[in-house]
Design a protein around this nucleic acid. Structure first.
Length: 362
DNA sequence: AACTCGGGGCA
DNA sequence: TGCCCAGAGTT
């Protein structure tokens, strides 16, 4: 034994970190934790993990639930395709595998939302299979350990398998040790090599290239867009619509609106979009809020307006935005909305933001 | 291989 | 502000 694997396992054994999906025996719980953790910090995942499992304690419950309910539990966590895939995969697990996750990594890999990393993580952690699980942390740790500039997935896979073999096949603990090391010691910005249990084996540390591993690309500046949307009031009710399931924020609910075109004001854009998308005429009667929000690849200013319904029935119009419906402000809490809307939603649910000129509660 | 897809935390 | 994060799916 080279010692690297043994040092990793010893270091990991002394760690007691509260990480979702670890120290779990239920493969379903491991699965949910790993999907939630995709591109998401663990501290962000923790509250979602507990409440999600309380609401969907097993595959059967998840498969039998509506996508709307699953998205509501996912609201604010981002990458909503994960929730859609998880829901779809639960159905497949129920149909094909009798409600139990398959133990084989390739079978896991074929389920929606389970890629190479997640398949390896579930197989190794939940089922004890000698499979690699290379996430961003492991990629960084191995890149530094072997001083590799830009290793391919296949290369990292092979290196992981070697370490797993050195660990006597204990892939679960070894994979978790590599991930844990990457997230707490061998970090991207400020690696703490003094505290690293395998520093003596680290080729990048010997070469002085730790800060250069792995290489990262520079990103172009984020473009900006103005978005206008309307709180369309019809008496005490307001109008919401469900976004298409494909694409950005797929399946979430929103207030109707769209991009502000050049040469028009946000208020004009809000009125135009409501007419184009839902075929209803409204009059803009006031401004609600102006929200700044950043997505991964662009940023927006969301202009929200109060609007008064004039004519048109969204239920029978040829709408591109599916399933428009009228709801009371207090009912908004049932629907999953994008994070950019949350502050306004809270005010509406709490009754602080109300329809202008409305008589108010009797 | 390049793009899309959220949101939050941190220097 | 830019960068990163226990990645996957699509083209």
């Amino acid at each position: 034994m080279s010692g690297t694997a043994r040092l990793l396992l010893e270091w990991f054994r002394t760690r007691q970190r509260d990480v979702p999906g670890r120290n779990e025996s239920d493969p379903y719980r491991v699965w949910v934790a790993e999907v939630m953790a995709q591109q998401t910090r663990i501290s962000t995942v923790i509250p979602y993990y507990e409440s999600f499992l309380e609401r969907f304690p097993d595959v059967e419950t998840l498969a039998a639930s509506s996508l709307d309910d699953v998205l509501k539990a996912w609201e604010g966590l981002g990458y909503y395709g994960r929730a859609r895939n998880l829901h779809r995969a639960a159905g497949e697990v129920r149909e094909r595998y009798g409600g139990r996750l398959p133990e084989d990594a390739d079978a896991l890999r074929s389920l929606p939302g389970i890629g190479a990393y997640t398949a390896g993580a579930i197989a190794s952690i939940a089922f004890g299979k000698p499979e690699p699980a290379v996430d961003g942390n492991v990629r960084r740790v191995l890149s530094r350990l072997y001083d590799l500039e830009n290793p391919t997935p296949g290369c990292l896979d092979a290196l992981s398998r070697d370490l797993i073999a050195e660990a006597g096949g204990a892939a679960g603990p070894l994979n978790q040790a590599l991930m844990d090391l990457g997230s707490s010691v061998c970090t991207a910005r400020a690696p703490d090599c003094d505290e690293c249990p395998i520093a003596r084996h680290c080729l990048a540390l010997q070469s002085g290239t730790v800060a250069l591993r792995p290489v990262r690309r520079r990103r172009p500046p984020l473009p900006h867009q103005d978005i206008a949307a309307a709180l369309v009031w019809r008496g005490p009710q307001l109008l919401i619509a469900r976004r298409p399931e494909d694409g950005l924020l797929g399946g979430l609910w929103e207030f109707p609106g769209g991009k502000v075109e050049t040469g028009e004001t946000p208020a004009e854009a809000a009125r135009r979009e409501v007419l184009e998308e839902l075929g209803i005429e409204v009059e803009i009667v006031g401004e609600v809020a102006e929200v700044q929000h950043a997505y991964s690849h662009f940023r927006i200013t969301l202009h929200l307006f109060h609007a008064r319904w004039i004519e048109g029935d969204p239920a029978i119009s040829e709408s591109r935005a599916g399933s428009p419906r009228w709801v009371l402000p207090g009912e908004l809490a049932r629907y999953a909305f994008p994070a950019a809307n949350q502050a306004v939603i809270r005010r509406l649910v709490g009754g602080e933001e109300r329809a202008p000129e409305s008589p108010g509660p009797a």
